[in-house]
């Protein structure tokens, strides 16, 4: 009946009808949009305004005066490393943060695929037993992982140094390397500084990160039809040739989006840096997220923190655009 009505309906009615889908959609969207408008989008816009002010503790109370407009002062202070946090160096933090995410993801993916391949070997005993154990790091909350690994890297009572004692037949407490606070960096080239603490963080995050990659790789491996391998064998392909011609084309489309996701997650990984090394030594394992947190939590420079968050937004936007491009380029390579 409504079909007939619309055919002869006046123009206003037809606009009402034409927008019916949009109106229904917005009815579904309304609750989430309203909430996000108030607690997500408005704060983000408010933050941009804050970044041009000297918002600080004195402006916090309900009756407090409004902060002063300071122009792009906060942005300049960040770029000139003038934000009270000791040893802060914007370039060094950014370079470290990028390297941190990249090195982790590369190791996670390689280990994840290798271990998935091992567990996918036909005829291997105890597969289900190993799979059940290997999933354990995935299910433990990251904050617990971070605090436990901090404890394990303790110089005098930590599990890592005790283990080294046993391996090298030293008396218990013989090896007392302070992994998380060793002041002399292993690598130091301009803004690229890697202290020993980085390697301790890396060890913890590799423990945390490879299992999920392995799960994703296993899913991809199990979707490969067995006939493809048989066909390759008939063509006389060796193990490496089979891996390149059959396994890799199936792995890539599953692993690449996950690697990109892992890159962003690791780039923003707060817990390990904050709880294990506390950003030390000398701020060398500080990330953008932990720096942003310290600006609010320790320095109470809300205006500077807002400007820092705006920088973070553009850095993440750039990362997203670059990784999307990489993903597209590789997809074309596949086709």
């Amino acid at each position: 009946m409504s079909v007939i009505a619309s055919a002869s309906a006046p123009p206003r009615r037809s606009l009402w009808r034409r927008t019916q889908n949009t109106r229904t959609a917005y009815l579904f969207l309304l609750p989430a949009l309203l909430v996000m408008l108030v607690i997500t989008f408005y704060p983000l816009v408010f933050q941009v305004w804050m970044s041009f002010t000297d918002y600080s503790l004195k402006n916090l109370r309900v009756t407090a005066p409004a902060p002063n407009y300071v122009g792009i002062d906060n942005y300049l202070r960040i770029l000139q490393n003038n934000i009270v946090i000791p040893n802060f160096d914007f370039m060094r933090v950014l370079v470290f943060n990028l390297w941190w995410a990249l090195s982790n993801v590369v190791i996670h993916v390689i280990l994840g695929v290798l271990i998935a391949l091992i567990l996918n070997t036909p005829g291997l005993w105890l597969k289900r037993f190993y799979r059940a154990i290997y999933i354990v790091p995935v299910v433990i909350p990251p904050i617990i992982v971070a605090t436990v690994w901090r404890n394990m890297f303790d110089p005098t009572n930590g599990a890592i140094n005790f283990l080294i004692d046993i391996i090298f037949r030293l008396p218990p407490g013989g090896f007392t390397l302070d992994w998380l606070n060793e002041p002399n960096p292993i690598i130091s080239a301009g803004p690229f500084v890697l202290p020993l603490a980085y390697f301790a963080l890396l060890a913890a995050n590799v423990w945390l990160g490879w299992p999920l990659n392995s799960v994703v790789a296993t899913g991809a491996l199990q979707s490969i039809p067995g006939e493809l391998y048989e066909a390759a064998e008939m063509d006389g392909a060796g193990a490496w040739a089979k891996f390149r011609a059959v396994t890799l084309p199936y792995l890539r489309p599953a692993m690449l989006p996950y690697a990109i996701y892992g890159f962003v997650i690791t780039f923003n990984l707060f817990y390990l840096s904050y709880f294990m090394s506390g950003g030390g030594p000398f701020g060398q394992t500080e990330l953008l997220v932990t720096t942003a947190y310290r600006l609010v939590n320790e320095q109470q420079l809300y205006g500077v923190a807002a400007a820092f968050a705006v920088f973070q937004f553009f850095i993440l936007l750039a990362i997203t655009l670059v990784t999307n491009r990489v993903a597209k380029a590789t997809a074309q390579f596949d086709a």
Partner: peptide, 11 residues
């Protein structure tokens, strides 16, 4: 894409 900390100051 933003980390949770991104809205810490304004909130």
């Amino acid at each position: 894409m933003l980390p949770a900390v991104a809205t810490l100051a304004p909130l």
